[in-house]
Amino acid sequence: MKKWKRTLSGYVTGLGIGALCFGGLTYANTGMMTIAAHYANIKLLTNGTTINTAAQPFIFNHNVYVPVSTVAHGLGASVAWNNAKRQVELTANPPATIRRGNMDYAGLPVYNGTQTAYYRGYPYVSAFALATALNEPYYVNYAQRVAYIGRGPSTGMPIQAFYDVRDYGAYAMLHPQLAGPTYGWADGAPRIDGVPYPNANSLVWSSSTKGGSQVPGVEYNLQGHYSQLTGNFGLDDASDGKEQVQLTVSGNGKQLYQSPWMGLHQPAAPVSVDVSGVRLLTIGFSVKIGAKVYAMGQSMPAGYAVNIDFANVNVH
């Protein structure tokens, strides 16, 4: 296939003699014209995503022509047709300039790599960095373009928005990078008795069949600002079914809730716990094999595949 390239002669041919820019200049030809359009199944991609356009791009006079609406939408610009002025009117936000710097607190470094956006002459600070400085949970919904610091939306604040002040058992061990709780399965969503749950705000854990796994738990700082913890607890369908699991929720060191012992293919236990006044919230798991209970922080024996789901956990 021939590589099409814009050439100077192409411009000249396309524009007529001497008309190098538009802006009141008259083209050599106006009105209806029959032109030779080259079609070549030309795909249009913006930022790697194929734009499905019904009106196909074509090549005319060494230029690739596309419907303006298609490319404008692909680049996030809005487009309008001004019929009186016979012009296309694009409206687009310029991209922000992002610089990565240090986050300091009272003049001393906390972490590096915070993203500051410079947009239309003003600096914008990472909402996550601000939430960190405020010691508040942070949640952003990019699809809806809304960020929450502190209290969340009406559906509650997803549990992973909260800072884990202490980790227990397997959660205290280094994963590939950091110690901390695991939110969601890498190979799918939680599924309890055939019912799927959202991956993102689910606290999950899987034992190693080789043994030595420590039953996990995690402590969050709620600062006494919240009233209710909700979720669904059970044994994930991927478990071997040789064990039962239990969820214990404590506030300020005092037990607030304990689930029944949950077995394989048992419908998830709906969890709703009053956390009013709770500063430190502990979510701990236990595993029972036969009559033997392995509590949070204790090592499990080899030969068991237990997959725990505390699914769809939100704090209200």
Binding site: F22, G23, T30, G31, M33, V68, Q87, V88, L90
Partner: peptide, 8 residues
């Protein structure tokens, strides 16, 4: 196609 000094 129509060419009509269409502006952008």
């Amino acid at each position: 196609a129509e060419f009509d000094n269409i502006g952008i």
